Computed example of a mutant assay.
Amino acid sequence: MSHQPDPRYDIDGDVYVSPRYLAGTTGFGDPALAPLLDLGWERHHDDLGNAYLNSPDRKIRLGYIPEGDDDGLWRINAYQDPFGAPTWGVCFNDSTPTEFVRAFTTVLATAYEQGPDAYLARPISDHDEHDPFLAVVPFLKQGWEIDRPQRGVFDVQAPDGHAGMEVTTGHLDPAAELTTRDARWQLWAGTSIDRPAWYATASTDTPVALLSAVTQCIADPAPLLRWRQDTRSYVEGMAQLTPVLPPGPPAPTPLDVQRAVSSRRPAALPATSVPRWSTSSRPALPGPRR
């Protein structure tokens, strides 16, 4: 049987992708680097084209690594001691929508300006500001549901089942959290968490404010703008693509309306051609009788 194309995806040019977590990466890292570069963070590149940022106090490091050994495109670590082990680490893979990474770096820039008490703040249960549950709230407000309850795992999924967040409880290996997907927090989108289109991980002590910035961005119902040819194949059959229509003509102004009405009126006759009559007019004289 021949495959019949779905007319919903037989479009070209710019499109809006909804839900936004199925949009995929933009392919450009600059928007997510900008909030930190605006603070004057040092940037350098290696011979492969990977970019590395360091905060002025060397306590936060970001790697944008398109030529790395795995699909971890973005790796961000924070340190209590610049020469010690990372206090927390976050990873976004190479298909993660760039807007989600920018949401993280934007709040990270704000936290850095506030000082170590902000960007090294550990999650604390039942704490108004640092309760880890706060990172889940944006999803629940958009109708995401707690799914597959099981011991040691707290899982929340989108209504369509194509995105979710998994929170692991209990003890975890700190080194594994920084180098594998076995981290405290894992965000994903696609067909399942085992075969995600993109994923992001965050280790145990990642500040709640940074996690919440990402979950709020993911839960936002507004679509994301993409070039149709750049959308991933997994989008078809799951996401809604809406073409961006070219702008129409501007609405007419009152002056435009007045000119249009005037152009449709009949031209006025010359004053000399308009017959006039009044009570003072003399009656016409009779003609000569034959």
Score class of each variant (00 low, 15 high):
W277Y: 14
E236C: 01
V274H: 06
P250C: 01
H45K: 08
Q80E: 15
Y199V: 00
S2W: 12
A118G: 01
D155S: 11
Y199M: 05
R184A: 03
V257L: 14
D6T: 06
D10F: 01
L22P: 05
G84P: 04
L36E: 02
G89C: 02
Q229E: 14
I218M: 15
Q258Y: 04
T179H: 13
I60C: 03
K141Y: 02
D46F: 11
E145D: 03
T110S: 13
P288Q: 06
M238D: 05
K59H: 13
D47C: 02
A111P: 03
P286N: 03
R75H: 10
D160P: 06
S192N: 09
P82E: 08
F139I: 02
L108R: 10
P86Y: 05
T98R: 13
G190W: 06
A23S: 15
G29C: 00
H171L: 09
P246N: 12
D69G: 09
E42N: 05
G63E: 12
T169S: 14
D173Y: 09
P132M: 09
T242D: 03
L140C: 00
A32D: 03
P254A: 02
H130S: 10
T253Q: 11
L48W: 08
A135S: 15
P31H: 15
N50Q: 04
V167A: 07
V167M: 14
P66S: 07
G152C: 02
A183C: 01
L37G: 01
Q216M: 03
E166G: 11
V136Q: 14
P97F: 05
D117S: 08
L53R: 08
D194T: 13
P250H: 10
P35Y: 11
T206F: 05
L36Q: 02
D81R: 14
V274T: 10
A189I: 12
Q4L: 12
L39D: 05
A85N: 13
Q4N: 07
H45V: 00
Q142V: 07
L39T: 02
F92W: 13
R232W: 10
D38M: 11
D94R: 11
A268L: 14
L36H: 08
P270I: 00
P56M: 09
G68R: 09
A103F: 07
D256T: 04
A158V: 00
H44Y: 15
M238E: 10
D47H: 12
P174C: 07
K59C: 07
A109S: 13
V136W: 09
A267Q: 15
Y199L: 06
S273E: 15
A200Q: 08
Q216D: 04
F104C: 00
L245C: 02
